[in-house]
Design a protein around this nucleic acid. Structure first.
Lengths: 199, 199
DNA sequence: ACCAAAAATGAACAATGTTCAATTTTTTTC
DNA sequence: GAAAAAAATTGAACATTGTTCATTTTTGGT
């Protein structure tokens, strides 16, 4: 069995573990037991567990991108952005445990640990939003538009961490879709105003 | 020395440790060593480390509230909201390590572990924003307004987790103040539009 | 069949949260 | 004040982490 195959098997087995039992369940020993490979082999393959999680997060972002990319051609830009958000929340809810890991990791690791490949995934998703923005706000200067996109996307991304835990429920009974859609639409309405004001 | 005094000493010593060396440095043994009390005493006082962190987070939220409350009477509602946001970011930057712990905790604990007292602090801060909203948007129905406040406050709160880590820097060179102020002002502009539309 | 290189192993280490029998301190009782 | 009882404090011990690395096993070429 080739080296890559072991790595792939560990990744897919680990992914199943996270999905099924939660991110906390993913430990070197549990993965070893579940996969049949020794702890040492895991370390030979990935160096350390952080790298392993980085790969998992990369796959999660890739999977999210593929879901959103399918909506690229649908409807008006405004309609599409709403679809993106709805699909984003669907994805987060369906992949709670995986998404938890994404947030948990970014919180515990400094930027220098993020690989370029990993970041490219984030940028890729941002590009989708950016394209919709382009047709919605043709009159806004590019730097301002880029800024606005980053702010909106970061807001939605960071807020989605609340969906992976129950913390939100104790603060408010607010529906998760409503929460994100209201943010999107209020923000878009605000941009329309600011667009007119600047011309 | 009374029981409460030990608890207070541990809390203040622990707080100093977090501020100085970071949230990861706060372990039962390190706190024991730094405070002079044994590990067992820490557990007698707080039951477990999670409770200890809960108290620290409670104090952090209290401290944030006090900072924001001072601005309660200044300027117009719009001006005040901008001051709140600016002061919020100041606080987060000044108390990076403590704020990290707030986010880290909410991510790792389900709602049932949040004490009522802890949540009250969050609600208290929300009230400040709510009051400013009241005078800015008198025509919006109360339920809609409450929803909008929660969305805005949650966005800012969750986005602030990026300020405590360097993850943001690898995604964008965007200034942290600009980031939050743009979110606030675009959102407010959007609310103005939606307010008119609903009447 | 042999041997060297590569890969896989899992016992061992340090550090974590947590427990609890043993010790020390404080309070009560006479 | 001494003895007894109660309460508080202690830190060694346990289970679980990530991680390392000498040893063993497998592989591949001659």
């Amino acid at each position: 069995m080739s080296k890559d195959n072991i790595g792939e098997k560990l990744v897919s087995k680990g992914r199943a573990l996270i999905k099924e039992k939660g991110a906390d369940f993913l430990t070197a020993r549990k993965l070893s037991e579940a996969s049949g490979y020794s702890v040492g082999t895991i370390y030979n393959q990935f160096g350390n567990m952080d790298n392993f999680i980085l790969i998992q997060n990369y796959l999660t972002l890739e999977s999210l991108y593929n879901r959103l990319a399918k909506l690229q051609t649908s409807g008006t830009a405004y309609h599409r952005l709403n679809l993106y958000v709805k699909e984003f929340i669907n994805f987060v809810i369906e992949n709670k445990n995986l998404w938890f890991l994404v947030h948990n990791f970014h919180l515990h690791n400094n930027s220098r640990h993020f690989s370029r490949v990993y970041l490219k995934r984030v940028v890729q998703i941002t590009k989708l939003v950016e394209n919709a923005f382009k047709s919605m706000f043709p009159d806004i200067e590019v730097p301002e538009r880029t800024l606005s996109i980053q702010v909106l996307w970061l807001s939605l991304f960071s807020m989605s961490s609340f969906i992976t835990t129950d913390a939100l429920n104790s603060f408010s009974k607010i529906n998760k879709y409503t929460l994100c859609e209201l943010l999107l639409n209020t923000y878009l309405a605000g941009m329309k105003v600011l667009e007119k004001a600047s011309t």
